[in-house]
């Protein structure tokens, strides 16, 4: 599989493409467990991060991934940039590309901003989260984490709970989970669902307690305070009462069930404080796997090795080649 950019899960062309990334991630997980967790695969390449929205964890994850592949990194943050002076997105993208970068990792509060950047530059563009639209590497690390815990996604019942309407994680997860054969149920009050679900391979429930017993994975979305001012919810308390994963609800989950969250968590809102620390919670695994998944994605976009999915051994041996 060769792709020019990773803007949405669909760019991977379905289950086979996603599986390739997950297998490649296996190799990079092995690399990151070595005493020197670094391979020369992208030596001489430069990865720039262009973040129009603060997201320390995603930026650190991408930059760590790039460094472990021996790529050079640079970062462009909006707070200190010419963007505040009115520069257009296109001018900013062309300026960064002119500095000689091979990949641009874009985070933006506007849906579609990475798509626009990809249309203007030759460098590979990775979507690190755009508005309410997609966050494909998050979905890939979620798939990897579920596969690690439960062996695969085929036939699993996955509940995505919370503010789906405004969630880029949910859109990417729905696409990736269903491509890999999981049955996805969106659980939210109607005001936090997209206005239309036409074409979405999902079921919908407004009642967490009804669907919870059948869940293999409960994926909690971050609840944002501003939703209250938009009259989408009466109070945060009412949301927590109806949709929060409380201790009592967590006890009704099967022993093998997995609890996930893209972070940062609001303990006490969408997830009870003690539930986040239960053995079923895979939240720290998600973060850990994020680095390896992003190594796989960058390698896929910029690497030039002969094999589609090289082993960790092969990646280390490539020292002389790169």
């Amino acid at each position: 599989m060769t792709i020019a950019d990773l803007l949405s899960i669909d760019d991977l062309g379905g289950a086979d493409g996603i599986e390739d990334v997950l297998r490649l991630t296996d190799s990079f997980v092995e690399v990151t467990e070595r005493s020197i967790p670094r391979v020369p695969a992208l030596r001489g390449k430069t990865v720039a991060s262009l973040f129009y929205e603060d997201s320390t964890r995603t930026r650190m994850s991408f930059e760590t991934a790039a460094k472990r592949l021996s790529a050079d990194t640079m970062s462009f943050s909006v707070a200190s940039s010419s963007v505040k002076k009115g520069e257009s997105l296109r001018d900013t993208a062309l300026t960064i590309e002119a500095m000689g970068v091979d990949a641009i990792v874009v985070r933006h509060s506007s849906s579609g901003a990475p798509h626009r950047v990809a249309g203007w530059v030759d460098a590979a563009v990775v979507n690190a989260g755009d508005g309410w639209h997609e966050h494909p590497t998050q979905a890939l690390l979620d798939c990897y984490t579920i596969r690690q815990r439960l062996g695969g996604l085929g036939g699993l019942h996955i509940m995505i709970v919370g503010d789906v309407k405004h969630s880029r994680v949910a859109r990417s997860d729905v696409a990736a989970f269903s491509a890999l054969g999981a049955e996805v149920t969106l659980v939210a009050p109607p005001t936090l669902l997209p206005p239309s679900l036409e074409g979405w391979p999902v079921r919908v429930s407004h009642d967490l307690d009804t669907v919870l017993p059948g869940a293999d994975v409960v994926y909690l979305l971050r609840m944002q305070q501003e939703r209250m001012t938009e009259a989408l919810l009466p109070t945060l308390r009412e949301y927590t009462t109806r949709y929060g994963l409380s201790r009592r609800r967590a006890e009704r989950l099967g022993a093998g069930a997995v609890v996930m969250h893209p972070g940062p968590m609001n303990r006490g809102v969408e997830i009870a404080p003690e539930v986040a620390d239960l053995p079923q919670a895979a939240i720290i695994d998600q973060v850990r796997n994020g680095v390896a998944v992003r190594m796989a994605v960058l390698y896929l976009l910029l690497g030039s090795g002969p094999e589609k999915v090289p082993t960790a051994e092969r990646l280390v041996e490539q020292a002389g080649v790169a």
Partner: peptide
């Protein structure tokens, strides 16, 4: 309208853009 940037429906939902009905 609520600050919608395109028609609210199938495509606004998919694209993650605020819609106006």
């Amino acid at each position: 309208c609520g600050g919608g940037h395109m028609h609210e429906g199938e495509w606004s939902s998919r694209l993650g853009i605020a819609g106006q009905p």
